[in-house]
Simulated assay, not measured.
Amino acid sequence: MTWTVASDWKIVEWNEWDMKHLATSILFNPNKHEEMRNTKVRTFRDEASTRQKEPNALLKWKASLDNQSQSSLSSWDGNGHCNWTGIICDKSRRVHQLKLSRFGLKGKLHGFSFSSFPKLNVIDLSSNYLRGTIPSGVGNLSRLTYLDLSSNNLSGYIPFEIGKLRSISELYLESNILTGSIPPSIGNLTDLSFLYLHKNKLSGSIPQQIGMLKSLYKLALSDNNLVGSLPPSIGNLSNLSGLRLYNNKILGSIPKEIGMLGSLEGINLSNNSLSGEIPASIGNLTKVNSLYLSANNFHGSIPQEIGKMRSLIDLELAVANLSGLIPASIGNLKNLYRARFLGN
């Protein structure tokens, strides 16, 4: 025989042995039932306390913003934080997404308690007026898949702890005033598809660990102060579709490993200090439709292998210090719409 028993959490079926065991346990240990009840009460209180940390943390951050920003977040008041502007919760009423793009927010991120949001999956604070540095606490968001802090006034270094965001697939930090080097810990973000760091004041060289980002689809590091050479490890980015490194101070030769980027559709390395010859392996990039190498310090001639780039539409090699004749193989580029060779 079985009995159906309704507990606080679920309905279960107990057989005769279970019922006898329970009765014996309560008969000979009268405190057992009370202990079980107290345990459940404590668990409930702990969960409620944890959930309350999130609205408290949000209200604390709101209070650190200027008056106009606080007015924009007027719905952030009292209970029911899952109904607040820009807040999306999961089924357990834990904050899952924070979306406040273009809210005119003025303040800093240091008042934001990242550790209070263990289930946070998306942060979009783009196109605001946030200033100060990116706190190292951002690395506590182990479930974060999307982080957009672009188009603010953030300064200082990209924290090393950014490499702890092992679940992240999209990282947008462009159009800020970030300085220092790209941290090598970026190589830990093996699920990353989009990495946008352009329009900052980043310096130093591109870390070789960039080659560990084998899921990377778009890489934009343009409009910075990057120096050093292109790491050969860039050839590992087999899924890369777009490579934008223009307007930097990158030195040395284009590594021959660039020819391994079979998924690449667009390359812009213009306005750097690249030297050496354009590698023949560039002919392997048969999906590339735009190739911009202008304003560099190459030597030698345009490789005849460029004629293998059958998808090429736009070719810019102006002011690149190239010599010799334009190869006849360029006639194979049936899709070519524009080609610039001036200033060589």
Rank of each mutant, 00 (worst) to 15 (best):
Y129N: 12
N225G: 04
L109Q: 07
W76A: 06
V12C: 05
D148S: 14
L216S: 06
S270R: 05
L141M: 05
L213C: 13
K218T: 10
R93Y: 05
G104I: 10
G324A: 10
Q52S: 13
S175R: 12
L213Q: 11
D8H: 09
L98I: 12
G107Q: 07
Y129K: 12
E34K: 12
G262K: 15
I254S: 01
R244K: 08
K106Q: 04
L141V: 03
K164V: 01
N272E: 14
L221Y: 11
R37M: 14
L192Y: 08
S238H: 07
R45L: 12
S69H: 06
N200H: 02
L226C: 05
P55L: 03
R338K: 15
Y157I: 04
F298A: 11
N296K: 14
S311L: 00
L336K: 06
A48N: 09
S150L: 05
M1I: 09
E316D: 15
L120R: 06
F114P: 04
I267F: 02
W76V: 04
G139Y: 06
R94W: 07
A63C: 09
I168E: 06
L202M: 10
L173V: 07
L333R: 02
S64V: 11
N128C: 08
A6Q: 13
T39L: 09
T179P: 05
G204N: 08
L197N: 00
R143Y: 14
I168H: 06
I158Q: 01
N31V: 14
Q209A: 08
P55Y: 00
R340H: 15
D148M: 02
L147K: 04
I313G: 07
P207F: 03
